[in-house]
Amino acid sequence: MSSRWAQTTCFTLIVIMNLSAWIDIQGIMVELPLIIPLMPEGWALPSAITICMTAASIAPVLVLILRWRQGKRFSEIPYIYAIIIVGIVSCCMLAFFWQRTAFVFGNQRSVWLLGGIFTLSTVDCTSSLIFFDYMKRFRASYLTAVFLGEGLTGLIPTLLVLAQGMGSEEVCIQAVNGTGLVPIYTQPRFSVRVFIFCIGGILTVSLLAFVLLRWSNLVSLADAANPIYVE
């Protein structure tokens, strides 16, 4: 493999790895128009989601404290594995159980959905800190790949939604008795479950990209390693 191809491949793998930063939460947010009508909270659900995401923002602070206590013994590698794997598992759980509710505080609540969103928000908030820490191992020119990957976390779910079609578009057809028109609402091309599985699949590809960066000789072939970094 030539050095140029190795550099391009290494850059691409970093982009793919960083897709796992926010793509799961971004995916859930763009899918809300299909989720909200089926949940007991109705249009109060976005407020509950916001509370979950805000509560999850404490995770980076905990990582900073842990890093301060461990000092030079701290390594971001196990955390990257954990972030991506937890994201994959959470997406799989959400795909099967997002519609399940439980009776809490006198009402049915979307505990599975909110619990999954809280978990995904926790790892996503942490990823912004951990992934940048990982990039100290690479030359500065590869930092652009991080921003590109995180930028695509908004674009890719949007393209998936466009492919899915939101449904609920009103189409008028002739009534059976021929006396008038009745509205028929269109359905999306694929379900919320399939959409979440697609997001989980992207996270799996991100995990494979990180494994290749860690365990192949691609980084050395591309001469991408930071020469002043000492592991």
Rank of each mutant, 00 (worst) to 15 (best):
L120Y: 00
I173R: 08
P183C: 11
L113R: 01
L152P: 02
S141F: 10
S127R: 05
V171L: 11
T144G: 09
I130E: 02
V146L: 14
T179D: 15
L148F: 08
A145T: 06
V89L: 14
G116H: 04
G154H: 06
G151M: 04
G149Y: 06
E150T: 15
I88S: 01
C92A: 15
V176T: 12
S141Y: 09
W98E: 01
Q174S: 14
F103Q: 10
G149W: 07
F138D: 04
I156A: 04
W112C: 11
I117Q: 00
R100G: 05
D133K: 06
G180T: 07
C92G: 12
V104P: 10
L114F: 07
E150A: 14
A95S: 05
G87N: 07
F105Q: 12
A175F: 09
V182Y: 07
L152G: 01
F131H: 11
L160D: 05
S127F: 05
F147T: 09
N177H: 15
P183L: 14
A102P: 04
M135I: 03
F147H: 13
V182L: 11
C91N: 09
T126I: 13
L94I: 02
V89C: 08
L148P: 03
Q99V: 05
I88W: 02
I173N: 02
F103T: 07
S90A: 15
K136M: 08
F131G: 02
S121Q: 05
P157S: 04
Y134K: 01
G116Q: 03
I156N: 03
M166T: 11
L159Q: 05
Q99N: 12
S90C: 15
G178S: 11
L129F: 13
V123A: 04
S168T: 09
F105W: 14
T122Q: 01
A102Y: 11
M93N: 07
G165I: 10
E170V: 12
Y142R: 03
G149M: 04
A163M: 14
S127C: 11
S128M: 10
Q174Y: 12
Q99D: 12
A140K: 13
R100Q: 15
S127D: 10
I88A: 02
A140G: 09
T122A: 08
A145S: 15
A95P: 00
A163E: 07
C92D: 03
V146F: 15
G178A: 13
R139M: 13
K136R: 11
C172P: 00
V182F: 07
P157C: 05
V171Q: 11
M135E: 04
P183D: 12
M135V: 04
R109L: 07
G165R: 04
G116F: 03
L114E: 07
R100D: 14
S128G: 15
L120D: 01
G115R: 01
P157N: 04
W98R: 00
T158N: 10
S128I: 13
S110N: 05
L181H: 10
L120E: 01
I130D: 02
D133H: 08
R139I: 09
V146I: 14
G154Q: 06
V89Y: 02
M135S: 03
W112A: 14
A175N: 13
V89H: 01
R100M: 13
T101N: 09
G167W: 09
L113E: 00
E170H: 00
M93W: 11
C172T: 12
F103V: 09
L159D: 03
L120A: 02
